[in-house]
Design a protein around this nucleic acid. Structure first.
Length: 757
DNA sequence: CGTAATGAAATTTTT
DNA sequence: TTTCATTACG
């Protein structure tokens, strides 16, 4: 590719970034400012200057982004060989390559959230910690946070203000022990172990720096302490660190991302050049205007401009509905309107929501209206039980130490190795410090295991030994073999409403594709699987409406975007309302969603929706309060916003949302035709607390619920308070009820009453 | 020992 | 709603 082609149609700022040669550079790139373009052109530019593609390393945050760059670079005809990878998969690769130095077995397993939870359960059992005492997700979340800050169990000061803080260290230590024994790493370990390895191994650092002369990091605002350390180490010697990012699009703080990494870049690298990309090529001025008004409410940010390059366009709209079902129907009508009036293709449209669970209502409406859609969801497929089961066999094959996987399959399908036997095995393993696998082999010498059980165990071991011989087969063949011979297939065939069989077949199919394309063996297959989630299966040209969470939307763009559920408790999420930092992150999340839109944007909200199977009232998001740049489809809405033309259009009565005969052709007898008029009830906006005014201590006085107090529950009856503590600013108690159960409950939600006397 | 039935709880985002 | 864990029963 010629230099002038590489630089064609670039702005001055973009050119400066693309042609920057040596030394650190920070590109602050607002949404739609051509960031990906800059990165990919830059790779091409470097190569055109004689730099080997193999010495360029591009690090992204998601597979999707890495894939996007790969395809754009190859579309430019640039030389292949550049390593474009997520942090996680780079680390997994390197940790395997340098497993000896890292103190790992090259065949280590990678644990996802489900595995982590199982590991924690096992760890608790062994360390005699109460697994139920705290929500496991919460414990694991804490552990994650420590790991992201490069802290091991021993680095934690054991004093804390709440119960969990005081004991988290024990949980962490036990959990980690379980992982180590299993030769398993969780996602956080991949980063942490890599960072630590680089810390203590200067030789490796220089080797890698020699290998990767030019390092590019995308979405730098999303890096956590480990990722930061890794990037820094790799670039230390040559300083060729090129990072792009936008503080306003930092939405992963909850995962340990530290926005100050980007804010302090110039401090870390005093020679750094900084380029700002402020011209937005994506959206209409109206969309940008709204985005700008929204984000300006954030205190913690660097002022940045969004300069529209396009002109024309429509003012974004806001619609209110009575409930989530009507809201979904409204979305359907919007889609049909976009298609009919604006000549847009289904593939040009996207629906965003805050949480995956919210996709359901929308899906149902789309489905009954026969509108093709695709969902970009998280990891769903690989979380299915049957899939995890089959893969667990594969994992044990590769890594017999993997206890979580072993325990998962040892008696599934049931082969007579039940709880009692397993308990004895575990006990033995723990007391001799042996692996569970070893205990299996010695089962006949152990007490507490019946002759019958020993026989069953032998059979299991024989089966496993036979499978060892399959290890060089093609992955798809191994999977098929295991699936049948383990008895899993038979087990699943019995099921009634099963997609289970189909799912496993799909898995085998994808494995066959892997064999075809990569032909790299089981270990590599498992590693890739662990790190691959299926947003990558998202197909831009599928001709269907795209549905995804706001997080998944980052980095994408669509001519028409609709965001549903813009309600308090949804955006911002109810669990993000406690701190102003969290609140600002939620605002950035909405900002990210809005700035995905090229031409048409609409937001919607419902007056009620079901959450966890329960109907709940909902109110407009506080982010809408006083927000300029959007037209409200709600009479009497809010403070001071004038009725607009769109209001008159949309509130014309009797017609629903202006769908016409074309619509009913799509949805005969569907909810469309049943769509009701809704009343136009005035609504009140919640007060947007100034973000400086930290936390709201509107705490009730729960002190009477002290330890030892007798309490009464409307359904559970009488009990006694065993522990009183707070978390997340909520007072909770652990109550042992007289009729048995011991429960950890939120005082405010529990309906607990103090008993008299 | 294994499965079915029951009951209760649920952190939202992703690698 | 779904998921999970415990319990009861065969």
């Amino acid at each position: 590719m010629k230099a002038e082609d590489i630089l064609a149609d670039l702005t001055e700022a973009q050119k400066e970034a693309v042609t920057h040669l040596d030394g650190p550079m920070l590109v602050v790139a607002g949404p739609g400012s051509g960031k990906t373009r800059v990165i990919t052109r830059r790779v091409a530019w470097l190569v055109s200057r004689g730099i080997s593609p193999h010495s360029i390393l591009g690090l992204t945050f998601t597979n999707k982004a890495a894939e996007e760059m790969r395809s754009r670079i190859s579309a430019m005809g640039a030389a292949p060989g550049t390593l474009l990878s997520t942090f996680h998969s780079l680390c997994a690769r390197l940790l395997r390559e340098y497993s000896l130095a890292a103190g790992l077995k090259p065949s280590f397993s990678i644990y996802d959230e489900t595995d982590r939870k199982a590991a924690l359960r096992e760890a608790c059992r062994e360390a005699e910690l109460d697994f139920q005492l705290f929500p496991p997700a919460r414990v694991l979340g804490r552990i994650s946070r420590f790991k992201n800050q490069l802290q091991g169990p021993d680095d934690i000061a054991d004093k804390g203000y709440d119960l969990l803080s005081q004991v988290i260290k024990d949980y962490y230590a036990a959990y980690q022990k379980q992982l180590d024994r299993s030769s398993a790493l969780d996602f956080d370990d991949l980063l942490m172990r890599m960072a630590l390895l680089l810390d203590k191994n200067p030789g490796l650092v220089s080797e890698l720096s020699g290998r990767f002369r030019y390092i590019l990091v995308d979405e730098y605002q999303d890096t956590n302490a480990c990722q930061y350390r890794i990037a820094r180490k790799l670039a230390e010697s040559h300083g060729n660190l090129f990072v792009t990012g936008d503080p306003d699009q930092s939405i992963y703080g909850w995962r340990g991302a530290d926005i100050s990494n980007i804010l302090a870049f110039e401090k870390d690298w005093p020679q750094a050049k900084v380029v700002r990309l402020e011209i937005n090529f994506r959206s209409t001025p109206q969309v940008l205007n709204l985005a700008d008004h929204l984000i300006q409410a954030n205190r913690q940010r660097k002022a940045k401009r969004l300069i529209a390059h396009k002109d024309g366009g429509e003012v974004p709209k806001l619609h209110e509905y009575r409930d989530a079902v009507e809201e979904a129907q409204g979305a359907v009508n919007w889609i049909l309107e976009m298609k009919g009036n604006e000549q847009l293709d289904y593939g040009d449209m996207a629906l965003f929501y805050r949480t995956n669970a919210m996709s359901r209502a929308v899906e149902e409406a789309l489905y009954s209206s026969r509108i093709p859609y695709q969902i970009v969801r998280g990891v769903e497929f690989y979380k299915r039980r049957e899939i995890k089961d089959v893969l667990a066999y594969l994992r044990v094959l590769v890594n017999p130490s993997d206890e979580v996987s072993l325990l998962r399959i040892i008696n599934r399908p049931a082969r007579g190795i039940g709880a009692t036997t397993i308990k004895a095995l575990r006990h033995h393993a723990a007391s001799c410090g042996k692996a569970l696998w070893a205990a299996l082999e010695e089962a006949d010498e152990l007490e507490g295991i019946s002759a019958a059980a020993v026989k069953k165990i032998r059979a299991f071991l024989d089966m496993a030994a036979a499978w060892q011989k399959l290890i060089d087969w093609k992955v798809a063949d191994i999977l098929r073999e295991i699936f049948i011979r383990s008895g899993l297939k038979e087990l699943l065939t019995g099921d009634k409403t099963d997609d289970a069989l189909d799912n496993v077949n799909e898995l085998i199919g994808s494995a066959a594709r892997f064999d075809e394309e990569e032909g790299a063996g089981v270990e590599e297959y498992l590693r890739q699987l662990a790190l691959l989630s299926d947003p990558d299966t998202f197909d831009r040209d599928a001709g269907s409406v795209s549905l995804m969470t706001l997080h998944a939307a980052k980095g994408l763009e669509f001519p028409a975007v609709r965001i549903v559920g813009v309600e308090d408790g949804i955006i911002p999420h109810e669990r993000s309302q406690s701190s102003s930092d969290d609140l600002e992150e939620e605002r950035r999340l909405l900002f990210v969603g809005i700035t995905r839109a090229e031409r048409f944007l609409s937001l919607s909200l419902a007056g009620s929706r079901t959450v966890n199977g329960m109907m709940r009232d909902s109110h407009p998001s506080r982010f809408l309060n006083g927000l300029e740049g959007i037209e409200f489809d709600i009479p009497n809405f809010g403070f001071g916003s004038r009725p607009t033309s769109s209001e008159r259009i949309f509130s014309r009565s009797g017609k629903g949302y202006g769908f016409d005969s074309e619509v009913s052709a799509f949805a005969p007898g569907s909810a469309v035709s049943k769509n009701k008029k809704r009343g136009s009830r005035p609504i009140t906006l919640p007060i947007d607390r100034p973000s400086s005014e930290e936390k709201a201590p509107e705490m009730e006085d729960n002190r009477p619920f002290a330890e030892g107090k007798r309490v009464q529950h409307p359904t559970l009856g009488p009990g006694r308070v065993e522990k009183f503590f707070s978390k997340d600013g909520k007072d909770r108690v652990i109550v042992k009820f007289d009729n048995g159960p011991r429960l950890n409950m939120d005082i405010r939600l529990s309906n607990l009453k103090l008993s008299k006397a």
